[in-house]
Design a protein around this nucleic acid. Sequence first.
DNA 1: TATGAATGAGTTTTCATTCAT
DNA 2: GATGAATGAAAACTCATTCAT
Lengths: 200, 200, 200, 200
Amino acid sequence: MPRVTAQAREANRRALLDAGAEAFAAHGHAGARIDEISLAAGLAKGTVYNHFDSKDALFEAILREACAAADAGADRIPASGPAEARLAAFVAVNLEWASEHPALARVFARELLAGDDATRALVLGASAHCIGVVASILEEGARAGELRRDVPFEPLAVNFLCHANVLVGQSWASGWPPRPELPGTVASLFVRGLLSSPAS
Amino acid sequence: MPRVTAQAREANRRALLDAGAEAFAAHGHAGARIDEISLAAGLAKGTVYNHFDSKDALFEAILREACAAADAGADRIPASGPAEARLAAFVAVNLEWASEHPALARVFARELLAGDDATRALVLGASAHCIGVVASILEEGARAGELRRDVPFEPLAVNFLCHANVLVGQSWASGWPPRPELPGTVASLFVRGLLSSPAS
Amino acid sequence: MPRVTAQAREANRRALLDAGAEAFAAHGHAGARIDEISLAAGLAKGTVYNHFDSKDALFEAILREACAAADAGADRIPASGPAEARLAAFVAVNLEWASEHPALARVFARELLAGDDATRALVLGASAHCIGVVASILEEGARAGELRRDVPFEPLAVNFLCHANVLVGQSWASGWPPRPELPGTVASLFVRGLLSSPAS
Amino acid sequence: MPRVTAQAREANRRALLDAGAEAFAAHGHAGARIDEISLAAGLAKGTVYNHFDSKDALFEAILREACAAADAGADRIPASGPAEARLAAFVAVNLEWASEHPALARVFARELLAGDDATRALVLGASAHCIGVVASILEEGARAGELRRDVPFEPLAVNFLCHANVLVGQSWASGWPPRPELPGTVASLFVRGLLSSPAS
DNA sequence: TATGAATGAGTTTTCATTCAT
DNA sequence: GATGAATGAAAACTCATTCAT
């Protein structure tokens, strides 16, 4: 008997997380309305509180889910090769996920780029693995003589995440870079910068 | 007699703009509280409404001021020279102002990076001149063969502003890049990317 | 087959009455939570509504049960003898029951002492027989010259019930009077007051 | 300028305390409604929160005020004399106050007689002085040979407060004892009990 | 003009009650 | 009959805005 019910419950929880992501992405933590979220999920206001203790708890669950997704993607990239290609692969993997969960991706980007201090710390903490992977790509690239060594790896990894998210946001808002070229453009701009004929 | 009064009035308006910038920077538009702002300005809540029609009007005034400052800085940079140096100069000029008005700078960055669509459009519109200057630097660099030509100038200029603001935020939060090196690092990363000493 | 089921049903009803008494005793009518009651009874929230029409109906059932118990006890006391002894017997009989159903007893006391007007009227009405018995003890004691005649019997009987319940509550909360001495102390204080060597 | 305003503010605070006492007296802590209180005070709902942090804070303020009043009355009674007379004086003093602040008095009685454990502890703690005064009357009466010595003074003092409050409540609800005779009846019943004219 | 208490619409949160399983 | 997720009316609480002083 609980089987069908448990599935329905889980589906509702999912709907709330999705609707919440949408709302928090669009209006931020303070601007999102519980009413709007529950209605968008096709549920009554009170149902939110059957699944989450409070607006804050819902927000944090969404944030953690977004971070976990970023973390999970980090392991699906080549273990070796040129840093630029590995970073492009990283972006491609995450984009794939982000295009399936655009709202979650926007929450992640929003709070990473402009959350208040506590939220930003939460995002960085929950994305530690992901940041570590990017940092190690940068470190290995530097050790191989491919990349500059004058910048610390971890802040640079964080910077890469921001860079990627900014470009994703720009792509979404202005059409540039076009979606299919995003991974290549992100990695290329980050690694090669703007110099013409960079290596030739 | 009206002189002193007018001055006092102006001082109060300034205090409100400053305190408002602080609050909007820290908590975003929806999260900032009029009470907090007026108290931080050393004034009573009602006084806000002697100077601004509404919370929104205060927010917009702050936003416009921030954009205007960015715009004004755009004209104090060398009219010619290598793109990287001109971009570094741009960052340096804006940093100078930003370090005197850190809150305003953070509002600008926050809304540029993660404002809702309407606010973001407002910021971009009000920063049009500034964006145009950066775009023309990029365009001239490309025409001179110094920079890549495969990216459209205006979105790239917006991206540069974001890039710069992200690094300023990181500097503020994590200590890297160190303040004095910010302009050089911003421009270097943006123009040269991460490749190891490409030609030098 | 219906036998076991009917027994189980009855057991659940009992569990709900007991858990409800506990909750109403601890938090009063408005403060008790249906959730808390059903969980304490080891049942699901919805089951409450298979047994009672509403929270109010459950409350009233508990109240009536408590009053009925008080009423029933009233008939198990000596039909004659000194008023003090008969009152002590009354308390002893009720205490026996109360120590087996402490929560019910507390609901009775609580609503008698501080219920809102409607509830208090309900309690008094449902305890009419019990109050009548006490009143008749007092009346007979007065007619026998044992007790004062300057106080009306029925309000005094109500007062006695309150007096007894207060002392039971104090015993429970502070340890005085000790449980075994309760009937004697209650009756003695009520009948003899505090005068030293009362009769000598 | 603040003079008139401060007075008005204080008057509003008073109105809220009074209306709150009324509501808490009638419905208990959980049953009282903030809306009802603010409306009864002739104010808007939000105003409650300009004066008190929360419903709980308002409740506690009222409770403390009631306890303080009980405490204050305790010092206006004869320092010596027969215990019965002193107790009657105690009741008379408190009745005088209670008839001017009936709601406060009812809150005190209600929570003393049937509050949950935490609230009851608060009431007893905040009434410590008052209880001490009654206890010392009882102790001195016992030392003078006037009163029984077989009961501990402090629990008995608490019992006296309950006794008095119960009779006040009865007087209010049923008309007996009549208001003017209350102090005498309370003290007489408590000290002499029900024995018929024991010595006279 | 500045003040800050009051306001009340708008939110979050609670919880008795319903109902599909 | 039991279950417990969903419901939504009602409650607590927030805060931008007003306005008498």
